[in-house]
């Protein structure tokens, strides 16, 4: 039984293997991009909009509101990154209903890649907002002795994020595999339904956590680097 879609090699050429993770990722990407393009190519600024445009507007607005709720003062800056995280993971997980489909999020490589993206995005957003000097000074706050702990905190956060997503998605697959061998008729259906729910929740949690990291990094360090009576930090 194949647990990770990484191991499912569809094509191999001189050592470069095209596995199911990448192929299904492309499928998800194609679905998202083409769907968006079809809808947004007929956008109107009138008072009446099509159902699909209304649905997309609801999704985008909701993501933006969530970002704003977490405390980002400019949701538009984080919308492409956080929104894409959510949409990609959610779509990838929901499509697991389709027979023969293996969610790319069930691969540790994918979740690691997404976690690495968050790991890179946190300092990038922080630097773009406050400048590189202020960002680096955050690592030696409140004292230079804290430097190693801060670095470990950053890294472990990334790993935790990666493993959290991978574990949740993968666990669903693993449990379905086990239950199929035990009770091959009824339980897999229930688990599939549950998988839809957990898939959406995971997408939500992953995106929210990424935003929390980005937001907290910007806020706490800006508070530490620029102390003021009204801003005591986290």
């Amino acid at each position: 039984m194949e647990i990770s879609p990484d191991a499912w090699v569809l094509y191999e050429w001189r050592g470069l293997r095209l596995n199911a993770t990448i192929v299904f990722t492309w499928a998800v990407m194609a679905l998202l991009v083409i769907g968006s393009w079809v809808v947004t190519s007929r956008l109107t600024a009138e008072e009446t909009v099509s159902r699909w445009q209304a649905a997309l507007e609801v999704i985008v607005t909701t993501i933006r509101d969530q970002i704003a709720e977490i405390g980002a003062d400019d949701p538009g800056r984080y919308l492409p990154f956080i929104g894409t995280l959510f949409l990609f993971i959610a779509t990838a997980n929901i499509l697991s209903m389709v027979p023969g489909y293996q969610p790319p999020t069930g691969s540790l490589s994918t979740t690691a890649a997404l976690a690495i993206c968050v790991l890179i995005a946190v300092p990038l957003f922080s630097i773009s907002k406050r400048g590189i000097g202020a960002y680096l000074r955050g690592y030696i706050q409140p004292t230079p002795l804290m430097l190693p702990f801060n670095i470990v905190s950053e890294v472990s956060r990334t790993i935790a994020l990666a493993v959290r997503l991978y574990g949740n998605v993968m666990s669903g697959t693993v449990i379905v595999g086990i239950l199929i061998s035990v009770a091959p008729f009824f339980f897999p259906v229930v688990m599939q339904v549950l998988g839809l729910l957990t898939g959406l929740i995971q997408a939500y949690i992953f995106a929210i956590l990424a935003m929390v990291y980005i937001g907290s990094a910007s806020r706490s360090r800006s508070g530490a680097s620029d102390p003021s009576p009204n801003d005591t930090g986290d």
């Binding site: 470069l16 993770t21 990448i22 990722t25 929104g83 894409t84 890649a113 690495i116």
Partner: peptide
């Protein structure tokens, strides 16, 4: 390798969605 490919895929997806959706 897959990790690298997925990172690229994700960044491309971010760009495409920014272009066609957000």
């Amino acid at each position: 390798l897959t990790v690298a490919a997925q990172i690229i895929n994700f960044l491309v997806l971010v760009w495409l969605l920014q272009r066609f959706l957000y």
